[in-house]
Design a protein around this nucleic acid. Structure first.
Length: 314
RNA sequence: GCAACGAGCACGA
């Protein structure tokens, strides 16, 4: 039976719920009783391959067979429905589960809030958040992040910032996700100073930037013509020893894409001079960046130049 | 009984 569980999990994680449910059939035939976790895994997997029909069919079966859905199963269904755009139905399901006394937690609510935010229904997202709190379920970082994201995508930065301060007052610590969402939002409304302030705040709090957050920052800065600022921040990260793995390659990519090949060269030289990356690796990244930026001629030139890294300026 | 197994948030490509 454990063997079945492991294999079914494996199949589901590879996006093969059909083979998984065939095995589930075998289990039943052999009078093994699958546990709720297996059903949850399968339902999740069906949703992830976009097969709502089978996901819901399986859900029905679990309930018929007398399982009481737990918080994992509930949030899996809620999230599955939200991700395929059926937020309304997800909300109905959540409400019904709540009435049945099932375990509905912040995981479920965050999926709904996220779904509404992504659909641009920020007002409804706020309502759901309120309902959650009133029902005695405390919103966690995921819930706060989802609603902040909603405001950012709607370019309502002042409201987004208010949520940030609110969550902090509530003792919910922002994460690198929170800051990335907010920094991205500020860049999208061209508020560079606001974005930079948030970045500093994040660093001051000891939150390490990751590849995504740095890419958000460097892209925003480079595309708005503040390349040197981006380079300076990259330097600061280097001295602190928290440079995300793909930071250098990412920055070169944005610069090339923005047509600032010269700047990219300068950056590459600086990186190599300081011994912060293996020349061969950086060179390779540079060539790829040029290629993807539609500068095949320059890429070609670089492939055939044997000097340093970015020295064949044009 | 113990153990094993399941769920939600960000940029770009």
């Amino acid at each position: 039976s454990h063997a079945y569980n492991l294999v079914i999990c494996g199949l589901c994680n590879e996006g093969r719920p059909y083979e998984g449910s065939k095995l589930l059939g075998d289990m039943l035939k052999n009078e093994c009783k699958p546990n709720l976790a297996i059903y949850t895994t399968l339902i999740d997997s069906f949703f992830k391959v976009g097969d709502k029909e089978n996901a819901l069919k399986l859900l029905e079966q679990v309930q018929e067979r007398g399982y009481k859905l737990d918080k994992f199963a509930c949030s899996t269904v809620v999230n599955g429905l939200c991700k395929i755009g059926e937020v309304e139905q997800a909300w109905d399901f959540l409400e019904r589960s709540q009435v049945l006394g099932l375990d509905v937690n912040a995981f479920s609510y965050s999926a709904i809030i996220d779904g509404l935010s992504k659909a641009g229904k920020i007002g409804e997202a706020e309502k759901v958040f309120k309902a959650m709190s009133e029902r005695g379920c405390a919103g966690d970082v995921f819930c706060f992040n989802a609603i902040i994201d909603g405001f950012c995508k709607a370019a309502e930065m002042q409201k987004a910032m208010r949520i940030l301060h609110w969550m902090e007052r509530e003792g919910c610590e922002p994460t690198v996700y929170t800051y990335t969402i907010l920094i991205d939002g500020h860049f999208k409304v061209r508020d560079l100073e606001g974005a930079l302030k948030l970045w500093d705040e994040m660093i001051d709090k000891g939150i390490s930037p990751n590849a995504v957050s740095f890419r958000t920052l460097s892209t925003g800065l480079c595309l708005s013509g503040n390349v040197s600022r981006a380079c300076r921040i990259l330097d600061e990260l280097a001295t602190m020893g928290v440079v995300p793995a793909t930071a250098y390659a990412d920055m070169i990519k944005v610069l090339c894409k923005a047509g600032r090949v010269k700047q990219a060269c300068k950056l590459a030289d600086g990186i190599i001079d300081r011994g912060r990356e293996v020349p061969g690796k950086l060179r390779c990244a540079f060539i790829n960046a040029l290629r993807k930026a539609g500068k095949a001629d320059l890429a070609f030139k670089m492939v055939h130049s044997r000097i340093g890294i970015g020295y064949n300026r044009s």
